[in-house]
Write a protein that binds this DNA or RNA. Structure first.
Lengths: 145, 145
DNA sequence: ATAATAAAAGATAAAAATATCTTTTATTAT
DNA sequence: ATAATAAAAGATATTTTTATCTTTTATTAT
């Protein structure tokens, strides 16, 4: 069991890949994205459709079409993507799955778990979609396998 | 999507409840546990059976039987429970789900994600199964809903 | 206008996680 | 020994997540 769902992992990897290609001035088709991030193509299509509907990623149909990010979108935090595909439970939920748990009425793990959530929140809010463009272009990172 | 699976949430809540009752000198049946932590009884049974097989929780069959923790088990870290039910992906896995990702060949999120994992690892290793017994007995915490 | 391209949408399928039910085995008290 | 109790084990069912397939719609180039 991983921290993020498969859906979310694919979404994050796809977003990083599309961001890099957008930075280079290209649009990129589903097939190419799926190949480069090693995800099932039709499943990824569904994920990107959702992001597209929410305006988090841009797309155009037809020849030379594909997905891309405009300048504003490249500066959005990864947190937006995670929320869109997985909801906000990871930012706010109780570690023991208790609904009563809150700052004023904490569960046993609350204080420790809060630190974990804060770390996740910080990470996802401070990672912009375009943050790794240079590293990806330079081949410092890869997103497949 | 929560950090831990439902299975794992139930396991942790159950363990805390049984620990408290063990501290009081009682064994406790599946039905009572399930009621107090608000989990489906037969599903919880499977989870506890697994923990029992691995020697992480003690049990006796028959009248006056039930689950309990011996002194040694009360001092085990919660991490053992999590590993038993969910594996060790949460302690070691990559945030983007990449298998190549490692300290020497990191993915883009590696450094930030490492902090998250370390926080989780620390929390689960420093929380013993019996840690909240007093808080639970005094009614400072509850484990249902 | 037409053909080609690629995303969007809708319907369906497979796998995994979650949940339930039934039978068996071990233990205790009588 | 017998009856009662409670966990263990095995088989089955449901739900959610993950994955696929087909049809439609929009865009571009000719």
């Amino acid at each position: 069991m991983a921290i993020f769902s498969k859906t979310c992992e694919y979404a994050m990897r796809a977003v990083f890949y599309v961001a890099q290609r957008s930075h280079e001035g290209s649009r990129v088709g589903i097939k190419e994205i799926a190949e480069h991030i090693n995800s099932p193509e039709p499943f990824l299509a569904k994920i990107l459709q959702k992001l597209s509907r929410e305006g988090l990623i841009q797309s155009v149909k037809g020849p030379n079409g594909g997905f891309y990010f405009d300048a504003a979108s490249l500066n959005r935090p990864l947190a937006n993507i995670v929320t869109a595909v997985d909801g906000d439970n990871i930012f706010t939920g109780c570690g023991l799955g208790l609904t009563y748990c809150s700052e004023s009425n904490p569960c046993p793990l609350h204080e420790d778990f809060k630190k974990v959530r804060n770390q996740i929140t910080h990470m996802l809010n401070h990672t912009t979609i375009g943050k790794f463009n240079m590293g990806l272009i330079k081949g410092k990172f890869t997103l497949n396998k």
